[in-house]
């Protein structure tokens, strides 16, 4: 067991305070700001779960919408039969099984295969769900009617985000996390010291997929009416990639820096110029590649480093 350092205790305290402050948001406002806050927390949770896998492996997963939609559908189908917490567990299991299978099929091979496979995955599952619904059930849409208000969903998501952070921290301290760091730095080295890199990646993708499915499940009551095109909206996958990379993927909390500004910007653009949102996505992708390849966190670190170097020099 690795000892918990003082730094970690300090970060833990910061986190408790931050979460406590954020948890008060529904008490202040029940309207637009809470709704916006909910969207932000949703993307924070999604991005953190995404970075859990894509951060150390550098594999770009576009399957977010697929797992998200699966989670939403679990709740949509089961809400009248089973209690909500059990549905969340089922969502996690289904998300985990599907991501595990996808991982086994693709993660043994190079990254490109994985990207291509996940690119169409939301579309694939959407087609299958639509087909099953039109052929074996009465209608395409599902109603999710619960007593949950936006505040309840917000609190649940916040709690889940904390859980994802704790998971990420535990993974980092475990053998799996150590193996992932070596794989991320040099996969050949990892193979030589006897790490089964495919197994480690599949395991990590499974955890990430399960969490994303739970996020989808928690958000199902917010949509109230679920149909395949909205549940498996591929836009979610791309937004998560952009926000995470914009923040940076080396630490779990770096995506936070990308999520908040981009959610606000995207919300504004898609409300005022709905036809221009893809142009914004395009520009964001190009910006990330050419100007901030390490994310905003990389930029910030660069600036602070330069600043502290200057300080040292003046001391001398």
């Amino acid at each position: 067991m690795i000892k918990i350092t003082k730094d970690e205790i300090r970060i833990l305290l910061y986190m408790v305070v931050a979460v406590a402050i954020l948890a008060c948001l529904p008490l202040l406002d029940q309207g637009y700001i809470l709704s916006l806050g909910l969207t932000i927390v949703m993307y924070v949770a999604l991005c953190t779960a995404w970075v859990l896998f894509s951060g150390p492996t550098h594999y770009i997963s576009l399957a977010t919408a697929a797992f998200f939609g699966l989670g939403t559908y679990v709740v949509g189908i089961g809400i009248d039969v089973l209690p909500f917490p059990i549905l969340l567990i089922i969502a996690a299991l289904i998300g985990g099984v599907v991501s595990g299978l996808v991982g086994i099929a693709t993660l043994r091979l190079s990254g490109v295969y994985f990207v291509i496979f996940t690119l169409g995955m939301a579309e694939l599952i959407r087609q299958i769900v639509t087909w099953i619904q039109t052929n074996f059930t009465t209608g395409i849409g599902l109603y999710v009617l619960t007593d949950f208000s936006e505040a309840h969903i917000y609190w649940m998501l916040l709690a889940l985000t904390v859980l994802i952070f704790i998971t990420g921290w535990l993974i980092n301290r475990s053998r799996l996390g150590f193996a992932m760091r070596i794989i991320g730095n040099d996969e050949t080295v990892a193979a030589h010291v006897g790490i089964d890199s495919a197994k480690a990646k599949v395991l990590l993708f499974l955890i990430s997929g399960a969490y994303i499915a739970v996020i989808g499940a928690i958000l199902a009551p917010r949509f109230a009416y679920i149909e395949p095109p909205s549940a498996f909206n591929p836009m979610i996958s791309f937004l998560v990639v952009i926000m995470s990379l914009m923040g940076g993927t080396r630490t779990l909390w770096a995506p936070l820096i990308g999520v908040v500004p981009f959610t606000l910007l995207f919300d504004m653009v898609s409300a005022r110029f709905p036809n221009h949102s893809s142009i914004l996505l395009g520009i964001a992708f190009l910006l990330i590649v050419y100007l901030i390849p390490d994310g905003l966190i990389g930029r910030i670190e660069g600036i602070t480093k330069r600043f502290s170097k200057k300080k040292e020099r003046t001391h001398e």
Binding site: F238, S277, S278, I279, G282, F285, L286, I288, V289
Partner: peptide
């Protein structure tokens, strides 16, 4: 990026 730009 090019994809979304052209599509947009």
């Amino acid at each position: 990026g090019i994809l979304f730009l052209l599509e947009g």
